[in-house]
Nucleic acid binder design. Structure first.
Length: 301
DNA sequence: AAGACGAAAGTGGTTGA
DNA sequence: TCAACAACTTTCGTCTT
């Protein structure tokens, strides 16, 4: 995300979520467009959701827990005139204080969930994830709250991490890059939150199988199903030879798709494949070299 | 002229002391 | 907390089609 105007160097940028633009407040240059609205999702599909969501309030970025919204009963045991209160009253005040605090905690969890579920829904929609995935993600997020893993972390980054984990567990992996793009959270941050919750909740997330990326790549490159099958077959063989451990799964998948496209006479350039896979040509070449060597593939021109 | 190839240097993250 | 390390990227020169 840009923070200064490239035109005049001004640091004051205005976000216009209606138009989806970030505008320099000084010179009016549109610094970025098509930005994601990070505000909450207001749609409600049933009465339970409506109760949770329709409460209104400011968009996420302005919503800081307790910022000027909550009250607290102070610690000085005085009444409004400043004189000490009786022991009997004192006990009552202490009781009230205790419950007041508990109630605020409960409502802060509520509030947290409201924001988180909205964000979850938004990200899931942008990524085109199924209802099933959303449910699992929501469940996992609730576990995070229960285990108090959110404290000190941005809600959004935990949500993004949860989605990343669930996608992998359900074998429809999304890259950290994709999630970073739609969530507006840095990849680094999501990865950190992901590792953290994985460790704390002791959840088992399987290694990403590169062939899971193949259909996505072949589709964006408009390659036939034949190429897709070929690529997956190549990956099967590669896996048996232990060629994929420690490698980025997208790079391996990209190389397989590239090779398959050549073998099937539907050649795509390395650059084209690299672009849809989100890796560089060099990486494709490196994986391609390894695959070629180990599998004894000879490329007919 | 465009694409493929690979060497070399740089980057960001993980790991183990 | 720091250094070593592997994977990946960037950049660039050369070769091939």
């Amino acid at each position: 995300m840009v923070s200064t105007c490239p035109e005049c160097g001004n640091k004051k940028l205005t976000r216009d979520y209606e138009k989806g633009e970030i505008v320099c407040a000084n010179c009016g240059l549109i610094v970025e467009d098509n930005i994601a609205d990070q505000g909450p999702e207001w749609r409600a599909f049933d009465s339970e959701q409506r109760n949770k969501r329709a409460r209104g309030g400011a968009p996420i970025k302005y919503m800081r827990p307790d910022k000027g919204l909550s009250t607290e009963i102070d610690q000085y045991n005085r009444d409004a005139r400043g004189s000490k209160i009786s022991p009997k009253k004192l006990a009552q005040v202490q009781r009230i204080r205790k419950w007041h605090k508990r109630a605020s905690i409960a409502s802060s969890i509520e509030r947290n969930l409201t924001i988180a579920l909205g964000e979850l829904d938004r990200i899931a929609s942008s990524l085109g994830l199924s209802e099933n995935i959303r449910e699992s993600a929501a469940l996992l997020y609730r576990r995070c709250i229960r285990e108090e893993l959110i404290r000190g972390r941005l809600i959004e980054s935990v949500v993004a991490a949860v989605i990343y984990a669930v996608c992998r567990m359900q074998s429809i992996p999304r890259t950290l890059d994709e999630i970073a793009k739609v969530s507006g959270i840095e990849k680094k941050e999501i990865g950190r939150a992901y590792r953290f919750i994985k460790r704390e909740l002791q959840i088992d997330v399987p290694l990403t199988d590169p062939s899971q990326y193949v259909p996505k790549f072949t589709a964006s490159l408009k390659l036939s199903g034949q190429v897709q099958e070929k690529a997956i077959k190549l990956l099967r063989k590669a896996m048996k030879k232990g060629l994929i451990s420690g490698r980025g799964p997208t790079g391996v998948a990209a190389a397989a798709v590239y090779i398959a496209s050549v073998l099937c006479g539907e050649r795509r350039t390395q650059k084209e494949v690299a672009d849809v896979a989100g890796v560089t040509e060099v990486t494709i070449r490196n994986r391609y070299r390894e695959l070629k060597k180990e599998l004894g593939i000879n490329i007919p021109i």
